Simulated scan of single mutants.
Amino acid sequence: MYSTDHAEIYDFIHAARGRDWAAEADDLAKLILDRRPEARSLLDVACGTGEHLVRFATHFERTEGLELSEGMGRIAEAKLAGGTVHSADMRDFDLGTSYDAIVCMCFSLSYTRTVEELRSTAASMVRHLAPGGVLIAEPWWFPEKFIDGFVSASLAEEEGRAVSRLSHTVKDGRTSRMTVRYTVADRSGIREFTEHEILSLFSEEEYKAAFAEAGCPVEYHPGGPNGRGLFVGVRP
């Protein structure tokens, strides 16, 4: 779960890395509306700071988020001007309602530690999906595509603030372990912090099986907004 320090700089550093949340949300909305033109409601699972939700609100009448990180959820709520961000664990949640579309982006599913947790998360999502509803999920790298020892570096700058991000990711059995070191310089001084993320290396077949077992078969679409592809399905 992301720390408060990370939440506060998340949008700033990832925008500098080239993320365009509005364009991504527009593309996702098209995928949804092509399959369910009458879609009016959407749930963004593991919505982070809510950048996708801000744009989704221009496409759907009711948009809500679900986020476990308190810092991320607080930022998302502030952006949505009265919109709802549920504080809950995606592995097992019950919101008492259903949605025409559910999305789970930015490899959030890979934070589940086991295939059983992946299946539980898929089941929770599908339970909230209306019949004929559209589900879209973005995976982490499949085992055969993961680059062991991958290194990345980014720098974001604006007047009075600069943030650097260095990451190193290694394979550890069926997981990848990412170490991310941040340096933040602003008018108050310079501070550093390090995040450690464990991301499961599920196979394409394991993702598909989890959603099929939950009652919403999905197809894998290569490419996607971040090169890892998307799983897209419609609940019968």
Results as ranks from 00 to 15, higher is better:
Tyr207Ala: 03
Ala22Gln: 05
Ser108Ala: 14
Gly50His: 11
Thr97Met: 13
Ser120Cys: 09
Gly96Phe: 08
Phe231Asp: 06
Arg40Asp: 06
Glu116Ile: 03
Lys30Glu: 06
Tyr99Trp: 04
Asp27His: 11
Gly160Met: 10
Ala25Met: 06
Ile75His: 08
Gly227Val: 08
Leu42Asp: 09
Ile147Gly: 05
Gly50Pro: 12
Gly48Asn: 01
Leu33Cys: 09
Cys106Thr: 14
Ala15Pro: 11
Glu70Trp: 03
Ala130Phe: 06
Gly73Asp: 03
Pro131Gly: 08
Met90Glu: 04
Glu157Gly: 00
Arg181Leu: 03
Ala76Val: 15
Glu144Ser: 15
Arg113Cys: 07
Ala7Tyr: 08
Arg36Gly: 05
Gly233Val: 14
Arg181Phe: 01
Ser3Lys: 01
Ile75Thr: 06
Ile136Val: 15
Val45Ala: 15
Arg187Asp: 14
Glu117Leu: 00
Ala16Cys: 14
Leu155Ser: 00
Arg62His: 09
Phe211Trp: 06
Leu129Pro: 10
Arg40Lys: 15
Val134Met: 09
Arg235Ile: 09
Asp34Tyr: 07
Gly215Asp: 03
Ile32Asn: 03
Pro131Met: 01
Leu53Met: 15
Gly132Ser: 00
Thr121Phe: 02
Cys106Asn: 05
Pro236Lys: 10
Ala210Tyr: 01
Leu166Glu: 02
Ala46Ile: 06
Arg19Glu: 00
Lys79Glu: 11
Gly224His: 12
Gly132Leu: 08
Val151Pro: 10
Phe146Gly: 03
Thr49Arg: 06
Lys145Asp: 15
Glu61Trp: 00
Glu64Thr: 08
Leu166Pro: 01
Arg174Glu: 14
Thr58Leu: 11
Gly223His: 05
Gly229His: 09
Leu118Lys: 02
Gly96His: 05
Thr84Gly: 09
Ser108Met: 02
Val232Leu: 11
Ser200Leu: 12
Ser200Thr: 15
Ile13Thr: 13
Cys104His: 02
Leu166Ile: 00
Thr121Met: 04
Val163Thr: 13
Arg127Cys: 02
Val54Met: 03
Thr49Ile: 11
Pro143Phe: 13
Pro143Ala: 12
Met90Val: 12
